[in-house]
Amino acid sequence: MRKTSAPTLKIASAVLFLLVLLVAVPLLINATGRSDLYYTLTSVALLSIISAGVWITFFIGRINIGQGAYALMGGYVSAILVMNYGMSFWLTLPLAGLFCAVASVLIGLPILRLRGVYFAMVSLVLTEVARLLALALPITNGASGIVSIPLPTGISLFGLTLVPDFATLANPRLAFYIVAVLLMALCFLGLYRLAHSRIGQLCQSLQQNEELASSIGVNIAYLRVIAYALSSFLGGVGGAMFASISQSIYPSSFTVADSVNFMLNCFLGGLGYVLGPMLGTFVLYFGWDLLFQTGEFQLLIFSTVLIVLMLVLPNGLLSLAVPRKRSL
């Protein structure tokens, strides 16, 4: 009985959630006049995409603290393509992701052989490498970064305007918000499919015991590189979107602290749950924003809450809602 109704229930709740985000939230924001919330919510959506990438690497049993490197890379690729080659932003978005994916395959081939803390430390160092590279390379314009990137232009197919030019819009924030939410929905839909597919189950076998998986005939080297490339793709897309919204990118746009935050988002939401990164990002980002009023005590209270959360719920926030059942 229950099993047959579960998928429809899930689809219905997902659609409802999306409707709330796309219709109810803008209406609510219009009613209250807090249009600054658009930026906050857009950031949450994008950060959760980037964190979802980190989640994939957790899924194959690697602790990834290097996602900031790919977000930075994606941002720079998109910015350089738009500024120097006059490409449309919408074209650069997947290109940035692909660039990061290819780069991550090259980087991943040697470092994915590492495990546990070794991989965590190398990936942390990777973030620092990306920052130093952005400072040293001539094309990235050093510490001053790339600024005044134009807003995304429109897309029209056979004279039909699919996406309007953002520069002509009265409220580009709303447009960015909608794009970000759609991207997030797409990303988590894909993530859900991935986690429940054959590849997802193979990935889980990597998480538990790589030697055993390998001995059964799972191509672990191939699988982990694929997973890492997917993860970096998401990082690159998120970073490119961020560069476009803030219309600028600097070597300090994504630092070690950001990489650590992406990891914290996943942890906080719960590593065993697909929606973990989304919830974790939302809670962390809004918590941080709310604490802004406490001024200099912001970081103190924030970190104290984190520590307490960790002591009370060491398996993530979603372990509250789904007790004992290991649902993915």
């Binding site: 602790i63 990891m263 914290l264 906080l268 005590f297 970081l299 970190s303 984190l306 398996n315």
Partner: peptide, 17 residues
């Protein structure tokens, strides 16, 4: 790995203090 989150949170905490 949960201890990593805790360690990162303590790092933030010490920074704040």
């Amino acid at each position: 790995e949960s201890t990593m989150l805790l360690a990162a949170a303590t790092a933030f905490f010490l920074d704040a203090v």
